[in-house]
Amino acid sequence: MTVSGARGMFSAYAPILVVAALLALTPLATSANTVLNAMVLALLVALAGQGWNILGGYGGQFSFGHAAFFGTGAYGTALLQARYGLNAYVAFAAAIGAGAAVGAAIGFLSFRSGLRGSYFALVTLAFAEVFRIVANASPFTGGAAGTLLKLDVAPGNFQFASRAIFFWIALALVTLVLILTRAIERSRFGAYLVAIRENESAAQALGIDTFKVKLQAITLSAAVTAAAGAFYAQYFLYVNADIAYGAAVSVEALLAPIIGGLGTAFGPLIGTLALHGLAEGAKALTGRIPGIDVALYGALVVLVIAFAPKGLRGLAARLGRGLSTRWAS
């Protein structure tokens, strides 16, 4: 590898490792279970958002139904263990595969029929709703009562007494996807994905098989979001239809990258931390007024879309540039 190539590698991946290392210190700073719990949940939302960001942020295909993948990951790991007695880690991997398969199937149907924009968004939303209704009604998934996993704390069962371990595993997953996303940015696949987002006709004219690239993107995107769902089920040892396939998951998965910065590697993580930080802060200040976090989410989304269409990540870059030019002059 050339020197400039090595330097490019360093500047591309070093920030990811630094951020991961800093976040990994959290359990050393606090052993409060509530804080760690909140952090684990934030990382899961970030992970779901990272999945969404591959398809929506880079590929420009906005899904309103990523709960379909999250839920399949959650139910997948829960049912494979509870019903078929599979090892928790095997079930986790299989659940990611199931999520990817659902992504590929939805992608095949939607993209083959040329769905774009709001039509694609609505179809994904419809799929997630159908899954929710079926999971809520079917005896196989435990119906409205959901599926419970047997508590049996042992590392071999992917169950840990310490929340810190869960935190570190979730962080490792988020870090892995950060690296994956950065690698996509630096690949032909990534260039094609962004080209499709920017102008699909021009992409086709330049030889891009837009159907294939979108299908690959939704499959990968679904796999990542399914991993978040599978982790969720493993962490709480419980899943039901409203949690797994509920619209709230779909909304969180798209809000995080939109707030943090669409089509940027760090966007989903930044967006999640901002949203969750805000919600927690508001709860502390206002003394748990019900719904205050949702109202704040709404306000933040409006603010970001109005004043920072490229998300917090873009806003930071803009402020940085503004400051440096002011310093220079």
Binding site: R188, A191, A202, A205, L206
Partner: peptide, 23 residues
Amino acid sequence: QPFAGLTVRENIAVGAHLRHARR
């Protein structure tokens, strides 16, 4: 039909990728 959000270099590179897999 430019890829409006991309730089000139990135725009042209999309075309170049047809015959060059490496970034």
